[in-house]
Design a binder for these strands. Structure first.
Lengths: 235, 235
DNA sequence: AATACTTATGGTATTATGTACCATAATGTT
DNA sequence: AACATTATGGTACATAATACCATAAGTATT
């Protein structure tokens, strides 16, 4: 793409004459920043990296990277995620674009916020020089992050809350087989709201998106719950 | 910003060594494309321009423009809108980013889709060389648009539908004083769904977001309806 | 002037959905 | 065996959604 970057003014069809040379428009970089959400023993956590270089050296930040010229945006986000967590085919979606002029100190970098839901058990940190700079942080106790990353996290969590009932997401954070109690605890954590247990069951089961398995919970000191699996998302 | 574009590899903190020079990342342009929605005699319409230059010369397209180096994304979108319609302070929001590698034939242009709701009566096309290339098109009869603009329109309409009940938007498409019948007809057009008149009234009035005025419809050949105005959005 | 026609508006009955709460079941622990 | 704990099924009640009817208030027609 960079080979044919010989733009002429007319080739991009402005409404009126541009006041600066057309090449000046082609000086932006795109980045993706991923809010990677996990769930561990009742707590929501987010995967952060510690920056090893300026700007914001030593500060915690969302994992992210510049988009390569040959990459689609979604591919860049998947690359960041799989490189950091070793996970593929993970639930992932756009949150919002952050395009403030001065959001990045070294140049015009526009970032696209993504969020993804991962099962923290499946996650195996890549054995690399970066591993020691990676850590899960409690959502409620996030440090001050580099750039506008706190804003991105907030936006991601808002989107998650909005979508949870409508799209019935969140199961990605749980093991493949789970109990109704586990989903309820998870949704209560995400939405910061308590539900009546019996009613929650009814509502969720009536949606037909869960498959009851012929298996029960093991090694619990009370009546074991039936295990369920998620239906293939068809709608 | 373009003055200090002397990036070193470390200044952007990659997870691992980049396989291309850092400057290659800073060759993108950002654009905004606006789905400007209006409502005219029961029909939803979208403002399109006819492209006067390659690529896609002669084809209809969403109004949009490149983002200037000194502009925030939202500012660019507002600029496009006000330049084309003369309107300011209009309802406007991000829809989605479109970042496919080859979406723009002349270079790497990532576009941010916006949508806005305007009162088509207030709209006065700017008297300019561009005026004759501007036109409102019925949503149901859109031509094939340049680039991926049909996708953007579809995404914008989807977002509008999702938000209409939750955020009670759409009034922006109507005159300042309107009847309940008018809102209902509008929402029915947008959502492609019929509602019971009496129930729709109750539901909408119970939300407390409308102010009943001491005025009635004029010059209608039936019982005139009471006029309402929109409450200051406080929540 | 009376009648027909059209849309607005208020109301009620019915149905569906959401909520509170209780009873019993099934397991491990003491 | 009694108890603690969570699961699960069920019922009673409250609230919201829906269907539908009756009347009101205008214009147009006869």
């Amino acid at each position: 793409m960079s080979e044919n970057s010989q733009f002429t003014k007319n080739s991009v069809e402005p409404y009126y004459g541009y006041s600066i040379p057309i090449n000046e428009f082609f000086r932006c970089a795109l980045s993706v920043d991923c809010t990677i959400i996990g769930y561990d023993k009742g707590d929501l956590k987010i995967l952060l990296i510690k920056r090893g270089a300026e700007p914001f050296k030593g500060q915690w930040a969302l994992p992210g990277d510049l988009m390569y010229p040959y990459e689609n945006l979604d591919q860049a986000a998947e690359r960041v995620l799989s490189h950091l967590t070793g996970l593929e085919d993970v639930y992932m979606d756009q949150v919002k674009v952050f395009g403030e002029v001065n959001r990045h100190p070294v140049g015009r970098v526009i970032t696209v916020g993504y969020y993804s839901l991962v099962n923290i058990q499946d996650y195996k940190p890549k054995a690399s020089a970066w591993a020691h700079q990676l850590d899960w942080h409690l959502v409620d106790e996030l440090p001050e992050l580099a750039f506008d990353h706190n804003q991105i996290v907030t936006a991601a969590l808002t989107v998650l809350k909005e979508r949870i009932w409508k799209d019935e997401i969140g199961f990605e954070l749980l093991p493949e087989k789970f109990t109704l109690g586990q989903i309820q605890a998870l949704w209560e954590t995400i939405l910061q709201e308590k539900f009546d247990k019996a009613n929650f069951r009814k509502k969720l089961l009536s949606s037909q998106s869960l498959i009851p398995l012929n298996e029960n919970q093991q090694n619990v000191s009370h009546r074991p719950a039936k295990l369920y699996a998620l239906c293939n998302k068809d709608k």
